[in-house]
Amino acid sequence: MKPRTIIAVCSVLTLFGLTFSCAKPQPPSLIPSDYGRWKTTTGITLDYPIPGHEDRFRVIHINDKGLGFARSGGSPERITFSEGTIIAKDIYAVKNPGPADLPVMVTAMIKSGSDPNARGGWLWVVKDLKIGKETIMTGDFCVRCHDNANEKHPYGWKNPDGAFADYVFFIPGTDSVVEANPY
């Protein structure tokens, strides 16, 4: 091999190495991989249609930190989830998945009030489980819908007194009525 060729190959390899060593590292995953082992927020079977997810089967998990949310008492009551709370909702492709079916998407609320992308104190994250890509939702789609949790609503405990529920529809431990379809 000629010296010129060797120099050219070395230059290309050096450039290649520098390019990849300077490449932006992958950000850490916002939704932990073991979220499926967390407790669920409700015992209600979430297979009825709702705006946003329509009639696809859903299971909502919450991390231990989220279970320690604060209730102010009084009326209207104020519920506050602590920083670091993660509520992850498995979304299946169909209304009645079989035992072997896996969720196709996870939508998560991550309490992170200081994050510039937070809306209502939460980061709203969607993870496509087919490709493993997480997306922070910076629009108002998620927060605008979940804003209804802070007033009377048709789901779970229904928030009859219009408590500020910190954008969470299913407050752990509040399932007084288990119903297949609220409508």
Partner: peptide
């Protein structure tokens, strides 16, 4: 225009 939970009734 979103169909919000409060619109669903």
């Amino acid at each position: 225009l979103l169909n919000l939970p409060k619109c669903a009734g």
